[in-house]
């Protein structure tokens, strides 16, 4: 069913990664990315692969799910590795040379490590830390709290967070409604799939207009309902779930920092097969 495509691809669970504070995971994923970008050689990448696998184990996320997050990127990866493969100039003898193309050993390493492994790790790591194990609402909470110092310079942090929550809440509702309106107009003989661009765009009007109208209706009704539940902005508002750091956060934070340090150490003391 179309409404099952909920945003965020959150997989509820009870793992340590799920229990960790969203702030830890947001900052943690930045540390993780830094570690990946620091990695300069095969061993550093190998280490990060192992580390990511460990994260997946801690988060009870199966490899198959991780694979799914990579699949749509297949062509991007292919093109990026091709460019790296052909455009890298090496220092040694070319491995292969025909027509205008020469391939060096460095080119192969770069194609595999920099374009494929790095991007795959970046996507997997941030999915693991953020979308897969953190519910959208926790994520919003985390961002709101992290950004709350900005309130002092009058950035409407609370309002942004509330807008995000409501958007997340209404995505499934609006998808369902779009589906319904399209069916109704099809039954009245609407044809969305033939004709040129302009004709098709015109054919969509009978779907878009009702969708706008009902979105406004939703928004107005929801605003009234929120006011009836005493909503009056972020001031004087408390939180049901107070974000709290626990032992898990210490462990996850430490692990990520250690990973970053390890990558730097490997870069320095095992300078074999440097690719950067």
């Amino acid at each position: 069913m179309i409404s099952d495509i909920t945003l965020g691809q959150f997989f509820p669970g009870e793992s340590h990664l799920h229990k960790a504070d969203p702030r830890t995971k947001i900052v943690g994923s930045i540390v993780y990315m830094a570690a990946i970008f620091c990695a300069k050689n095969v061993f550093a990448y190998l280490f990060m692969i192992l580390f990511t696998a460990m994260l997946a184990m801690v988060g009870h996320i199966r490899i198959r799910l991780l694979w799914k997050s990579i699949k749509p990127l297949f062509f991007v990866l292919l093109i990026m590795s091709m460019i790296n493969l052909f455009a890298t100039k090496g220092t040694g003898e070319p491995l292969l040379s025909f027509w205008k193309i020469t391939i060096y050993e460095e080119g192969i390493w770069r194609a595999v490590l920099v374009s494929v492994v790095r991007v795959v790790l970046l996507v997997m790591g941030s999915s693991l830390l953020l979308t897969y194990t953190t519910s959208p609402i926790q994520l919003t909470d985390g961002i709101e709290t992290l950004l709350s110092p900005l309130k002092k310079i009058h950035v409407p942090v609370h309002e942004f967070a509330m807008m995000m929550t409501i958007a997340l809440r209404f995505i499934p509702t609006l998808i369902e409604e779009t589906d319904k309106i399209m069916k109704a107009q099809k039954a009245r003989g609407a044809d969305f799939s033939s004709g040129g661009l302009i004709k098709r765009a015109k054919a969509l009007l009978p779907v878009l207009i009702p969708l706008f109208v009902s979105s406004f209706q939703h928004a107005m009704d929801l605003a009234t309902a929120m006011e009836c539940r005493c909503y009056h902005g972020g001031e004087g508002r408390t939180k049901y779930r107070i974000l709290k750091f626990t032992g898990v956060d210490v462990w996850i934070g430490l692990a990520l920092l250690v990973a970053l340090a390890a990558v730097i150490v490997i870069n320095k003391f095992l300078p074999i097969g440097n690719v950067m």
């Binding site: 519910s135 409501i166 939703h218 309902a225």
Partner: peptide, 24 residues
């Protein structure tokens, strides 16, 4: 559909009390 604010049931129920400024 037009009166539920949050993406999780208990968070939604908490919305009113949060506005009242109650303790967690």
């Amino acid at each position: 559909d037009n009166q539920l604010v949050a993406t999780i049931v208990e968070e939604d129920v908490a919305f009113g009390p949060e506005n009242l400024g109650l303790t967690s």
